[in-house]
């Protein structure tokens, strides 16, 4: 029984992992773009972006999942996502990417604004353009500073993926819960915690390694 449960939880964990990895792949760059918007000197850009960040950070992710999944069907009369598992996954991914990009954008903004003005000035007088200065000089210093808060969000994301079951996205908790109905046992559900723990343990090691790698400069 233990092997059966483990195998099927592993299968569920694959869904979790897929959502986790793809969310990071898209939300990190999107977060950087959003952070530029929220730092823009032009209020026509800055204010709407700040408003969106407020809404996204100010409402539960579970609610956002429901709105994004059911919203198009209800308000536009067109179910954007289709009915199958792929549709549910896409909707969940969009909700997660958007939510996490907003959180990441604030971390990026804090990191970028913490770099001394002198670094920008030095780059400018050396004759670097603004984008060269940002990507070649500023960004690595930003990355070094934001590794700890980013690791926080990333570890939260591992566990937040379980929220996707409200739109019937197939992941590890869903799989664990199934055994209550099918076999009348609850321990597989509790057992899912071990998967989360092991995975976030690995992530902790990874972030520790990255921090150490970037430790060569101050």
């Amino acid at each position: 029984m233990f092997t059966t449960v483990t195998l099927s939880l592993l299968e569920g964990f694959l869904g979790t992992l897929k959502l986790f990895v793809l969310t990071l792949v898209f939300s990190l760059p999107l977060g950087l773009v959003i952070s530029f918007g929220s730092m823009s000197k032009n209020p026509v850009l800055r204010l709407p972006v700040r408003f969106i960040i407020w809404v996204v950070r100010g409402t539960p992710l579970m609610l956002q999942l429901l709105v994004i999944f059911y919203g198009p069907g209800i308000f536009l009369g067109n179910n954007l996502w289709g009915s199958g598992a792929t549709g549910r996954f896409t909707a969940a991914l969009v909700a997660f990417v958007f939510n996490y990009a907003c959180y990441f954008s604030e971390i990026f903004r804090g990191g970028i604004q913490s770099i001394p003005k002198g670094q920008h000035e030095a780059a400018a007088v050396l004759g670097l353009t603004k984008s060269q200065a940002f990507f070649k000089i500023i960004l690595l210093q930003v990355v070094k500073r934001i590794v700890p808060p980013i690791s926080n969000e990333v570890i939260t994301l591992v566990k937040d993926t379980s929220l996707a079951r409200v739109i019937a996205f197939y992941e590890i908790i869903w799989e664990g819960e199934r055994f209550i109905k099918s076999s009348g046992i609850i321990w597989p559900l509790f057992y899912t915690g071990v998967f989360y723990l092991v995975f976030s343990g690995l992530l902790t090691l990874l972030f520790g390694f990255i921090e150490k790698k970037l430790d060569f400069f101050k």
Binding site: G118, Q119, Q141, K144, F217
Partner: peptide
């Protein structure tokens, strides 16, 4: 500059 502003890495 007064505070050098070298690239730290």
């Amino acid at each position: 500059f007064q505070m050098y502003n070298l690239i730290p890495n």
